[in-house]
Simulated assay, not measured.
Amino acid sequence: MAPIAQTAATRRPVASLWIGPRLHYLNQLCLLSHVKHGHPTTLYCTEPVSNVPEGIIVRPATDIMAVDMEIVRQTSESFLSNVFRYKMIAATDAIWIDCDAFCHRPFPDGMQNIYAGHGFRGALNCGVVYIPQQGELIARLLDYYDNLPDAPAWFNKQQRKKIEKQDPSLPQAVRIYNAERTAFGPQAFTYFAQQTGDYDKALSSDVLYPVPFQLNDVFYDPYGRVEGHFTEATLSVHLYTNGTKPWWRKNPPLANSYAARMCAEIGVDPAQALEE
């Protein structure tokens, strides 16, 4: 992989988390797209990662928080990243980026509330997020994760019953996760943003999620018009690797597709980092 040329400007730092020994080419692409736009880009890792591209700063995840991999195994990687992102912001003041968020334009220096609605629903997503290091929203999120309740305040009766039916010896994080997988991600972020009045500060979806999740195949279509979803306000393009079909993960993108064009632009060879 040839190193990309970094812009002269040094912009706001961004950071993400990786759990596992190897990046997929789409993750390499998205991380390097931030480097291209001058953002110092840090990847926090729970173990050594064999193929982090040159230009990415690698740090242990334990720089931010203690990592209980047993809880991760009982839940998912997304559980840890949902807790990690707010602790990372509080510790470093960096912008959180998922490893499948492509930097279309650099984040403005003065932008203080970077989060947006997602797809066709009203919930806020937290795939790309920055909130002030000190304030009611981040304080409530950190308190939620550090002092897990018997059930999240927004849970309905059915969700609460799902918690009650589980083995009480399980970690509380696991019991909540088993009742509702998104209870630590968009649900928590949306609820606390509503409680603090920050919900109304959200950006429109075209800024961070211009392509709805339900249409994510368009990134691999050589005849797709991905840029038709973009506006002048678009900063980030979420590629939704958690919803990518197995064929696209295991094979290089077709020529002229958005994924192939962005790889050529950034300097990533997909064939060298496919899912095994």
Rank of each mutant, 00 (worst) to 15 (best):
A233W: 01
L17G: 02
Y258S: 05
L26T: 14
A271M: 12
P246N: 05
G267N: 04
D93F: 05
V218S: 10
Q159W: 09
M65G: 00
K250F: 02
L239M: 15
D200C: 01
A260L: 02
M69K: 13
Q166D: 05
S236M: 13
P253C: 10
C45F: 00
N82M: 06
S33E: 03
T62R: 12
S76P: 04
T42V: 09
P13R: 05
Q166W: 02
A123H: 11
P222V: 11
M88W: 03
C45L: 05
G122N: 06
W248Q: 13
L124D: 04
E265N: 09
L23S: 03
Q74E: 13
G119M: 12
K201D: 07
C30S: 13
H118I: 15
V211P: 09
F219W: 04
A153F: 02
A5T: 14
A271F: 03
V35L: 04
V14M: 11
F155E: 01
N147S: 01
A123F: 13
A15E: 02
N178P: 00
G55E: 11
R11S: 06
L32Y: 07
D109R: 14
Q134I: 09
S236P: 00
A2Y: 07
R175T: 03
H238T: 06
Q74Y: 06
Q187W: 09
D146N: 12
I266R: 08
W18H: 15
L254F: 10
N51W: 02
P53T: 13
V83M: 10
G224N: 08
V35W: 03
N125P: 06
Y130T: 10
Q194K: 15
L215G: 03
G228H: 12
Y258M: 10
A255D: 13
A61Q: 04
K201V: 12
Y145W: 04
V49A: 07
Y220G: 06
Q158D: 11
Y86V: 00
W96K: 09
P60R: 07
G119I: 15
I176R: 08
V226I: 14
L142V: 02
E227Y: 08
A5W: 13
W154C: 01
S78Y: 14
Q133D: 01
P222A: 11
E265H: 12
I57E: 12
A264Q: 09
R140E: 13
T46S: 09
G122D: 14
A173T: 10
I176L: 01
R181K: 15
D98E: 15
P186Y: 11
R249K: 15
C99I: 15
P212I: 06
V83E: 00
F79I: 07
N216R: 15
Y25P: 15
R59S: 09
P106C: 11
F213K: 10
A260T: 08
N147V: 02
D100I: 02
K165E: 11
V237D: 06
A66P: 01
R22K: 14
P21Y: 07
P222M: 12
A151D: 05
L29R: 09
G117C: 13
P13V: 07
I266M: 09
D109F: 11
F192G: 01
Y220K: 03
T46H: 06
T234A: 10
W154H: 05
E265V: 02
I176H: 00
